[in-house]
Amino acid sequence: MTTKLTFSKGIIKLNNAEQSASEIAEKLRNDIFYVLKRRGAIIGISGGIDSSVTLALAVKALGPDKVIGIMMPENDSSPDSKILALELAGKFNIKTIEENLTSALSGFGCYTRRDEAVKSVISDFNPLKDKFKIEIKQNVSNMKLPPIFYVTVYFANGAIESKMLPTKAYLQIVAASNFKQRSRMSMLYYHAEANHYAVIGTPNKHEVQQGFFVKYGDGGADVMPIGHLYKTQVYELARHLGVPEEIIKRTPTTDTYTAEQTQEDFFYQLPFETMDLIWHGWENGYTAEQIGNVLGYTADEVLNIFTSFERKVRTTEYLRLSPIHFHQTDMSTGLSY
């Protein structure tokens, strides 16, 4: 019988980073070679912490000659992404390929459809000069209600305007922006198939379980080696594996909208260090009081955060579902259920 640990700030710290990294690398190697029967790994690298750690693990698993990093800048990408991705590739001695997706995304109408939706809410928005982002303004620990999204435009003249997004505009912005993740996925699979390699996904535990990924976009991959790790554990592995310090220090952004935006503003509403611990407590049956006492929240605040976790898991179930397959039950009518 295992004894439940007392809830503490160190409860999810990896006991032995080398052992964790080696176990993941061993499983990844086994999955790629013997389950997927592929000769190597393709990873989209953005200079972010998750893709960097995934790449480092793949190199540990397969060696640098069997890993290719694909950089996929587009019109809205930060120039830092490429600089950091190249630094990472240099550190781990892997081959990189740059594929600019701007033309493909323009062809899909990604930018025009998205900008049209922003303009429908803030009519003075000029995508050629102004920048925008989507954000949540409520404080998750004080809210029992689901979050409401706002669009904030940063005008070239320095003015800022923020408005609540109506459903139609919100859905159109999300749907148009998701072309980005889906185009990246298509490009990764091009290179994977051209080399007979597997696509290695980069979402972490929160992204997978809270549904912060695009179905058939960044959620489209053959294996997800860090999908079970909390963000703070990803950082622990980054330090252990020698990911460049500039990448570790960089604030995680969505790299999706034209204005710089943190993942905390856009989706999580909590700092990673806090979210990891509360999620762990929630998942493992610790009470709101036990968690609140350690982290300096009231039990009510922790319960509100639990509610937001439950809601996110429930409402994003669709993203994690595979296509529903019908089975033919009656050969004479061909009816399937």
Partner: peptide
């Protein structure tokens, strides 16, 4: 409506748009 789990984020957003 929220304690019974009837509303999700998109549902709530739709309600706010509907009121408008």
């Amino acid at each position: 409506l929220f304690e019974e789990g009837i509303f999700d984020s998109l549902g709530f957003l739709s309600l706010v748009s509907f009121l408008n």
